[in-house]
Amino acid sequence: MFTHQIDAHLALKLMTEEDADYLFDIIEQDRRQLRRWMPWTDATQTVADELKFIRFARQKFASNEMLPLTIVIDGLPVGCIDLHRIDREQQHAEVGYWLKAKAQGHGVMTRSVNRLLTIGFDELNLHKIMLRADVDNHPSQAVAQRLGMQQEGVLRDHVLVNNEFRSLVVFSTLENEWEAHE
């Protein structure tokens, strides 16, 4: 199975149906915080909903349109990270992620995104990887900034979250910039 060990405790593994119960439990525990940023939160009301998403993501993986990964600490899921909207012809993709509240603030997401960018450039031969973060989600923006991603601009009122249009800050890095960063 596809697994990238980041350190002795942290790894990224291909998302599987076995992750559904763990991931749904995290969503339930952190629903209030996730709901603030993630438009899919309200639609994920049962383990079956999470399982449906995992199956969708695996289909996208099979068609080379997505790389859906589970973030695990000591073998237990703590969140998800992916490359989505993978465009092989134009050689670009976008990063998406979320993390259990109790795992935040310890560099888990920065190290996970760092590894995902390396996978995107080294293994998927991408030229550009983008990351979008809510204008008020400063921790998510800080991940992009710590990794040397460049802010490209703001997509005004771009996503509907909780019946409110939210603006997104767009960051990106190019393959040659990533190589210099590494």
Rank of each mutant, 00 (worst) to 15 (best):
V154G: 06
L83E: 03
V72P: 02
T70N: 04
L124K: 11
I86T: 00
F165T: 02
T70E: 04
Q141M: 13
L155I: 06
W37P: 06
P77W: 03
Q91T: 15
V95N: 08
E164D: 15
M15Y: 00
V135N: 05
K60T: 01
L174I: 14
A103Q: 05
G120P: 02
D157E: 14
M66R: 14
R156W: 11
T41W: 00
Q145Y: 01
F165W: 14
M38C: 07
F165L: 15
G153Q: 04
R132K: 15
C80W: 03
L99G: 02
A8F: 11
V108I: 12
T3D: 07
D122P: 04
F121N: 02
H181S: 03
D49E: 07
S172L: 02
R36V: 10
R166Q: 11
W178M: 11
A180W: 03
R35H: 10
G75Q: 12
V143G: 01
H92I: 05
V108D: 00
T3F: 01
S112L: 04
I27T: 02
G148V: 14
R55D: 11
I73A: 05
I86D: 06
D122I: 01
E28F: 03
T110Q: 07
K60P: 05
E50C: 06
A43N: 13
S167L: 09
G96H: 10
D136Y: 13
H92F: 13
G148H: 05
V95Y: 05
V169C: 06
R132G: 03
A11H: 06
L99Y: 04
R88E: 14
E28M: 12
R32W: 04
H127A: 12
L12T: 01
H84C: 11
F24H: 15
R85M: 08
Q104W: 01
M66A: 07
V161T: 11
Q33N: 10
L69H: 07
L14A: 07
E94C: 10
E94F: 11
D19W: 12
T173A: 10
